[in-house]
Design a protein around this nucleic acid. Structure first.
Length: 200
DNA sequence: ACACCGATTATCT
DNA sequence: GATAATCGGTGTA
């Protein structure tokens, strides 16, 4: 059994949000709440490249109450509400002042028996599919209170997960960004080949 | 004050 | 598999 190891802070400070989104695939997302621990293997991500990306909330350098978290340093958590119901989980990347982020759109369940003892306390096994950004927040218990928190400091942690054997990654255009014009075509979405996304 | 944005579930075929 | 029904926060005026 190989121990998952926390992803180092520097990883999230990187300037290439697209490659960060890709390399997050297959890593372990862990949410601790109270005495409970929930986890999933990241199976689908999208990159949002800030000021010059029409699909980004920070397009054109827009800075408001909602988007100011995007301008914080890489590793901060950006959670926003969609359809008045769903909380969408993003990880801010790059240096302070550069509003890049990775949206996590899908996770796979992890079996407790594939994890070492350090995760077993309070581990809650969730079931079903989490192939959609609203579903992962439901399954893992991510909410608005996580907004502006810091990965690997508070309740949300990201680990390298050598126990998961990464196969082929599919690259495609992003979901639900029709309004972004030509930027809607950018190949900024990544998912595991053997995973069924909610949307093609 | 108002237009805009989108993920999920239920219900139908 | 396809379609319809659903909400509330945000940004701009």
């Amino acid at each position: 059994m190989i121990e998952p190891v926390l992803i180092e802070d520097e990883f999230f400070l990187g300037s290439d949000v697209v490659s960060i989104a890709k390399s997050l695939i297959g890593n372990l997302l862990v949410v601790k709440g109270g005495n409970e621990v929930r986890a999933g293997i990241i199976a689908e991500t999208e990159a949002y490249a800030g000021e010059y990306d029409k699909a980004s909330h920070a397009y054109g350098g827009r800075k408001t109450q909602r988007t100011e978290v995007l301008y914080l340093s890489g590793g901060h958590v950006y959670v926003y509400l969609c359809y008045g119901i769903h909380h969408l989980f993003n990880i801010v990347t790059n240096q302070i002042g550069v509003p890049h982020a990775v949206l996590v759109r899908g996770i796979l369940p992890v079996d407790k028996k594939n994890l070492t003892h350090s995760f077993s306390a309070g581990f809650v096994q969730w079931k079903g599919l989490a192939n959609g950004p609203g579903k992962i927040s439901r399954k893992l218990g991510i909410g608005a209170h996580h907004n502006k928190s810091m990965v690997n400091r508070g309740q949300i942690h990201l680990y390298h997960y050598p126990g998961f054997k990464l196969k082929e990654i599919v690259i495609s255009s992003r979901v639900g960004v029709d309004y972004a014009g030509e930027d809607a075509m950018l190949p900024y979405r990544f998912y595991l080949k053997n995973y069924k996304p909610a949307k093609k």
